[in-house]
């Protein structure tokens, strides 16, 4: 089922949560809504589900305008961050709930069989008679997914599905969800504030900031060609240096970089910590090492440039230089964004 959001606006009291968001999600696509807290991503998801209604704009499921269809008739599967399993029902009863209250009559045998199928799908066979309090967080989230899938939703919506789990469980569940999605091919929209999760899992990432979409694209597109400073910053560690752009060249400490298409004036030069080559002397931005941090697979160097700007970069573990060493920085893959007057 294709989903289309058409200039959705939502305001809470006086706080504008979502400003005119338009978005299309193709049938069978797995899309991540990625953004910091307060970016409106959960609000958008809840509006797609019908748990909130937009003040303006429309939501289409396929060709049907679903904006005013209430949640119980909308046919979405919603997975909550804190699972929202019914604590007084067993795992089996939780999964069966949607089928029992549905208008489509199903026989008890049919329901039992479907519950067993779903438990197998989420790899929890044998836990049917446990209560939610008796299983782990990762298992609960899988039950929540099975429960949402039980009603054959047109769309699967997940609100920070792995937010409450610890790192290892998260990584496993992520890969597993991707597999399930490939098996079922159900249109899926999920919300996360974790870049790694979005990039790892999604076909397409929608990056939001302050209730607006700032960039949409495949993980490759958003990583390789971030459209603005926010995306660059949000997707991972980024260094920032003050620069001045004249005629398509950005200059930092008398070194110039390509900045085609960036208007003249003050700008910022961004680059990832891995994109620096340190030299004892030679061309580059002069800098002094302030601190060396050891990491399992690399060293993180904190340095300060001659004009007092801080830079962090990663080197091989064999990096021989220590605090107070002087040298120059060569920047690979720099990106220049002009400073928009705030």
């Amino acid at each position: 089922m294709k989903i289309r959001l058409d200039t959705i606006v939502k305001t809470f009291d006086t706080f504008r949560a979502v400003h005119g968001v338009s978005l299309e999600i193709g049938s069978g696509e797995l899309v991540a809504l990625l953004g910091p807290s307060g970016s409106g991503k959960t609000t958008i998801l809840r509006m797609v589900a019908g748990l909130e209604y937009p003040d303006e704009g429309a939501i289409f499921f396929g060709e049907e305008n679903a904006t005013d269809i209430e949640v119980r008739h909308r046919g979405v599967g919603f997975v909550f961050q804190h699972y929202a399993l019914f604590p007084h029902m067993t795992i089996g009863e939780n999964i069966a709930f949607g089928m029992k209250v549905s208008k489509t009559r199903r026989s008890a045998a049919e329901i039992t069989e479907r519950v067993a199928d779903l438990l197998r799908l989420v790899q929890l066979d044998g836990l049917k008679d446990r209560f939610p309090a008796q299983i782990s967080g990762g298992q609960r989230q899988r039950v929540a997914l099975a429960r949402a899938l039980a009603v054959d939703p047109k769309v699967l919506l997940l609100d920070e599905p792995f937010g409450a789990l610890d790192a290892n469980v998260r990584r496993d569940l992520r890969r597993w969800l991707r597999k399930i999605h490939e098996e079922l091919g159900i249109t899926t929209l999920f919300v996360t504030h974790d870049q790694a999760e979005a990039l790892d899992l999604a076909d397409r990432v929608v990056i939001l900031d302050k209730g607006r979409i700032v960039q949409t694209g495949t993980p490759e597109e958003v990583c390789r060609a971030p459209e603005n400073a926010f995306v660059m910053n949000f997707l991972g560690d980024a260094n920032r240096l003050k620069a001045t752009v004249t005629a398509g060249r950005a200059s930092v400490n008398e070194i110039t970089f390509d900045a085609a298409g960036v208007p003249d004036g003050p700008a910022e030069l961004f680059f990832r910590p891995a994109d620096i080559i340190w030299r004892e002397d030679g061309a580059g931005i002069p800098a002094v090492i302030l601190r060396v941090i050891d990491r399992p697979d690399s060293k993180r160097i904190l340095a300060v440039t001659a004009d007092g700007q801080h830079v962090e970069f990663d080197t091989a573990p064999e990096f021989p230089f220590r605090t107070t060493a002087r040298g120059t920085l060569e920047i690979l893959r720099p990106r220049v964004f002009s400073i928009t007057p705030a």
Partner: peptide, 20 residues
């Protein structure tokens, strides 16, 4: 709350705030 998080483990953060 039985529905609350069972394991509130450390979050996997790939962005270290504060650099830029």
């Amino acid at each position: 709350a039985l529905t609350g998080p069972a394991l509130a483990g450390p979050k996997l953060e790939t962005t270290e705030p504060g650099i830029s």
